[in-house]
């Protein structure tokens, strides 16, 4: 279905913070229209940067702890983590070029 794996409150530390490669995290919610719009873009990024970047998704309704910890308000919010730290973020249904250029800065 999707190139990006779902991450939860309990697996976030292992999958994102302790990752050896940069991680793109898509914070989304089920009935958020723009989230549905950006999802295929995120999947394309996952395919395009296979091996260079890990791409995961967090359902904020089901994983409120991690969403609150990182101050998620407007969704979709896309965050980039590197070495356990948040290094960048973009908010809203951005075009693929915007997401790719943001990501490239951290590779």
């Amino acid at each position: 279905m999707s190139a990006a794996a779902q991450v939860t409150d309990s697996t976030f530390k292992q999958e994102v913070l302790e990752s050896d490669v940069p991680v793109l995290v898509d914070f989304w919610a089920p009935w958020c229209g723009p989230c549905r719009m950006v999802a295929p873009v995120v999947d394309e990024i996952a395919d395009q940067y296979t091996g260079q970047v890990k791409v995961v998704k967090v359902n904020t309704d089901e994983n409120p702890s991690v969403a609150s910890q990182y101050g998620i308000r407007s969704i979709p919010t896309l965050m980039i983590f590197k070495g356990g730290q948040r290094v960048d973020m973009v908010v809203g249904a951005v075009p693929k070029t915007t997401l790719a250029s943001t990501l490239e800065k951290h590779l």
């Binding site: 919610a29 229209g33 969403a67």
Partner: peptide
């Protein structure tokens, strides 16, 4: 999403926020 929140909360809270 708005309708779902109306059911659950009594108000159509924006579904695009956490």
């Amino acid at each position: 999403g708005l309708a779902k929140h109306k059911d659950e909360l009594g108000a159509p809270l924006c579904p695009c926020r956490h």
